[in-house]
């Protein structure tokens, strides 16, 4: 899921400085799991904004995910026809709203951080950077592109000491982090597949990532083939 963090409230107030009336929409899926856009967070945000003199026009939590228009469209249509909307969802959710109603003015209430896993409520870990060419079968199911700060594909680099990543000595890193290649190695040992490591992985094709924005549009035929 997409892990989000709340924007600092002062930032939200600043971006809404010229706005008196605002609707709030949260997302009952990823943002709710991130504790940024579920019911509680939407209600809390409404209270805080009221305390700062704003009029709250609507308070909605979409469940389906806002970004899934086939089902979220009708929820989005419950928002007022125009005016300001504070979106407590990821950036994709926020922009999906605009696809349904371009008259609305979008204000982001969260910062989208990464694609990750919720280990337990309040604990999130990045797992995938959407590289477009998954290689997990070559790495024991652990992603080096996501977890190695240097994208090393034939690792580890010389900074891996005691299985820890050298970046841990940066003042910006609060906790020591594991070198992903030490993790991959342990995992491959466990499943008896260390021989995979003797091949040199070739450089990546980043073209799909460089071409922006990315879209996929299936033909009717392809949709049928995949099964609907």
């Amino acid at each position: 899921m997409i892990i989000t963090e709340p924007k600092p409230f002062e930032d939200i107030l600043e971006m809404l400085a010229d706005v008196d009336e605002v609707s709030i929409i949260g997302c009952g899926r990823c943002a709710a799991a991130s504790l940024t856009g579920g019911e509680k967070q939407v209600l809390q945000m409404a209270d805080k904004l009221r305390a700062h003199g704003k009029t709250i026009v609507a308070e909605i939590v979409s469940d389906p995910a806002i970004c899934y228009l086939p089902r979220s469209k009708e929820v989005i249509e419950r928002l007022p026809k125009n005016g300001a909307v504070l979106v407590l969802a990821c950036g994709a959710g926020a922009q999906s709203i605009l696809e349904v109603n371009p008259e609305l003015l979008i204000f982001p209430g969260t910062n989208s951080r990464f694609l990750g896993m919720t280990a337990q409520v309040g604990e999130y870990h990045e797992k995938c950077t959407l590289c477009g060419d998954c290689l997990l079968h070559l790495t024991g199911g652990i992603c080096p592109l996501t977890r190695c700060p240097k994208n090393v594909l034939n690792g580890p680099c010389g900074d891996c000491v005691d299985g820890k990543c050298g970046i841990s000595s940066s003042p910006f890193i609060k906790e020591e982090i594991d070198c992903v290649w030490a993790l991959i190695y342990d995992r491959l040992k466990k499943i008896g597949k260390t021989e995979i490591l003797s091949q040199t992985l070739p450089s990546r094709n980043w073209a799909a990532k460089t071409y922006k924005p990315q879209s996929i549009e299936l033909s009717e035929e392809e949709i049928k083939q995949r099964g609907r």
């Binding site: 690792g155 580890p156 891996c160 000491v161 299985g163 190695y185 490591l197």
Partner: peptide, 10 residues
């Protein structure tokens, strides 16, 4: 570097 065998492989 440790694991050293990985360093050697590299």
């Amino acid at each position: 570097a440790d694991p050293l065998e990985l360093q050697a492989l590299r």
